[in-house]
Design a protein around this nucleic acid. Structure first.
Lengths: 82, 82, 82, 82
DNA sequence: GATGCGCTTTAAATGC
DNA sequence: GCATTTAAAGCGCATC
């Protein structure tokens, strides 16, 4: 009954509002991250160094995951797993 | 006592971990947003159009805020507010 | 003398053609890469594994570079280098 | 003789290195393209507009190719070509 | 303290 | 449909 031109406008509205709410949350967190950097800088840490460390840690983590994946793919290729 | 080369390593660790945690949260929300789009698509909505609508609504909101700001400026100029 | 509406059309043409030529080259190399994958597949290698290995090797290389950079940035922060 | 678990490791190595080399070349060209854009910007051109022009030219080219193809189809249908 | 600039990140488009 | 590739946005940084 709330259809307009064949689309359920209530449902569409809900979808859009959910996305908007999530995007707001995301923005809020991004802002929190910025605050942490600002605070860190204010107590004498170098933001550049912090960013670099975080980047390396992330890469190490990713690499570990990728290597696990590679093992899976090898085992699959060798018929050791389905 | 946990200083290494003049930097408090405990505190640095805390900073880094806080940022990492926040980035994880951010990533989680980004993933939630993607899920909503996927779900919307599955019930027949066009993601591209939804994005466009959200973009327009965001712009309208920005405009509204800018107009409010302008009103403040005028009111201030007229001595109606401090 | 070859200006149209204030822009040197000869020069603009040259810029555009240079970019187009480079993009063609890039496309050609992308195609070569695809060929290597196809050939590898034809002799029994699994493309997925190859991609994964290359990704890991790239990451290891990047990580090494980033760590060098981090060292630089520390040394700079500690006044050991300009 | 250089087989490990049934895969010829020499050959695999060669495949991987060929791909890596090609990817490096590709990256180099991408970097060249960026340089051309930078240079264009420095003499006053708008990168965004240049991109748009290139996009349009590419589309026209595609259209032309599609038309050629159509001509082929017609000629074939008319028995003018094999 | 403002502005521009490059770079990183994020969004969108394309191709397999 | 997914992964890659490309375009756009946002952000920090440096400079004036």
């Amino acid at each position: 009954m709330n259809d307009v031109a064949g689309v359920n406008s209530e449902r569409l509205k809900s979808v859009i509002e959910r996305i908007e709410r999530l995007e707001d949350e995301k923005k809020g967190i991004a802002s929190d991250i910025k605050d942490v950097y600002t605070e860190a800088k204010s107590v004498g840490y170098d933001a550049k160094i912090i960013r670099e460390i975080i980047r390396i840690r992330k890469m190490e983590q990713t690499e570990r995951m990728e290597q696990d994946e590679l093992v899976q793919v090898y085992m699959h290729a060798l018929g050791m797993i389905a």
